[in-house]
């Protein structure tokens, strides 16, 4: 189980890196999205995977049962999901603008702003 999710995180990270390194700006965005997923899954998994029950206290209980999933990690991931969504939306528009302004997908033109 854990080994499998570790593998999943690794595959996400590898595919994200590949997309970042090999392709144009559009795929760089896809890569960033994939990396963000990898990081979220890492935070979620590193805190320990739950057994299927939720971090919600049942109606008749006063506290969570033993072996509950880590609610703090879930809260962190939730925040991270939202933040990476905001950043991704911003990037997407940036891509659109770069394209509109330079007429390329924006990366080769970058070299010209340097020297």
């Amino acid at each position: 189980m854990e080994t499998l999710s570790a593998l999943l995180i690794g595959v996400f990270a590898a595919c994200g890196t590949w997309l970042l390194l090999r392709h144009g700006l559009f795929r760089i965005l896809l890569g960033l999205a994939l990396l963000a997923q990898a990081a979220n899954l890492l935070v979620f998994t590193a805190a320990g995977l739950g057994r299927g029950d939720t971090a919600i206290i049942a109606g008749d209980a006063a506290a969570l049962p033993d072996g509950h999933p880590d609610p703090l990690a879930q809260a962190l991931v939730l925040t991270a999901i939202v933040i990476s969504f905001g950043a991704l939306a911003f990037c997407l528009v940036l891509l659109k603008m770069t394209r509109a302004r330079t007429g390329t997908s924006g990366i080769d033109a970058l070299a010209k702003t340097e020297s």
Partner: peptide
């Protein structure tokens, strides 16, 4: 690099 990063994160998580 991709394999390196992927392997790295897998091993880290494990």
């Amino acid at each position: 690099l991709s394999v390196g990063v992927g392997l790295g994160f897998t091993l880290l998580t494990l």
